[in-house]
Design a protein around this nucleic acid. Structure first.
Lengths: 155, 155
DNA sequence: ATAATATTAGTCAACATTAGTCAAGAAAGC
DNA sequence: GCTTTCTTGACTAATGTTGACTAATATTAT
């Protein structure tokens, strides 16, 4: 209680609002000012405490009228499964192994056949082909993980 | 919501009219005056929010009796539509324009909401992020086109 | 008809206003 | 001590706003 750092306090503040209203929309500079921290600390708080694993989706816009919006989403009950696939994908993944991941998704009923084809198109060798094989594997991993993360919740 | 910028407000105003009447015809100076902005801001709003990828066609005329006309284009739900999107994507595409393309797909009924989210995850900034902006745009374009091409067969 | 003038919209670059990234240093835990 | 987490600020990027200048079209005068 007494020993909370300022990041924890900001986290609590935001989650208190989220306990009642599904989403919060803030102006970064305003909150930073309110808690007397530099603006980038708000990014830190969001990055460490409002992740998709925690059930939050964050959107933002810069420029005049800019904002950061945090939305609480309903997580599905396939979280452990998705986690295991994310771990399996890691930082690099070959097309062959990527295919296996997508097949697992399908067999688990997490995606249907149409969705499988969209995902396969996204990680296809014609789609991701920079000429640098290692880089391709990194990009493929990130694309897959991004998709996996979106399968964690209903939207 | 509270702090919308004026461009968003003008966009909403125009789209509200378009929701009912297929096209709007405005006099630039008049709208600028109505919203208390400089005339060129109307061009900015149109250029950023009423693109062909968003499904709008804009025509204008200068001189006495001049106007700007925005028309909501009816999307063809055949292969020509996907062709036109592939052309619109080209070799490079920004996230912003990519979003518009996916939105068009959705509005045309080519994909459902779940599929939209998968595609958006695939071209997200967290997914495609090599550190080289130009390369990212190339990869994003290829991923999108790969997906578009697969949608030809499926649908 | 042609030229001059008036009336519109378009372009572009400077500036303003937001948020994001990253790395260094400080603080807290172990 | 060592490691992890937190805090800070300099720098970057995205988006929005403004106004000076340009271009196209219509109207009026000659």
């Amino acid at each position: 209680m007494e020993n909370q750092n300022i990041s924890d306090i900001i986290e609590s503040y935001l989650k208190q609002i989220l306990a009642e209203s599904q989403q919060v929309e803030i102006r970064r500079a305003e909150i930073a000012d309110q808690f007397n921290v530099v603006p980038s600390q708000i990014n830190y708080v969001i990055k460490t405490r409002f992740t998709i694993q925690d059930g939050y989706v964050v959107q933002s816009k810069r420029g005049g009228g800019g904002y950061i919006r945090i939305e609480k989403v309903k997580l599905l009950d396939n979280l452990d499964f998705i986690d295991s696939l994310v771990t399996a994908v890691g930082n690099h993944i070959t097309r062959h192994d990527g295919l296996a991941v997508v097949r697992s998704l399908f067999e688990a009923g997490a995606v249907n056949r149409r969705e499988v084809n969209i995902i396969l198109a996204a990680i296809d060798k014609d789609a991701i082909n920079t000429g640098d094989r290692d880089l391709d594997q990194q990009i493929r991993a990130r694309v897959l993980i991004s998709i996996l993360n979106h399968l964690r919740y209903e939207s």
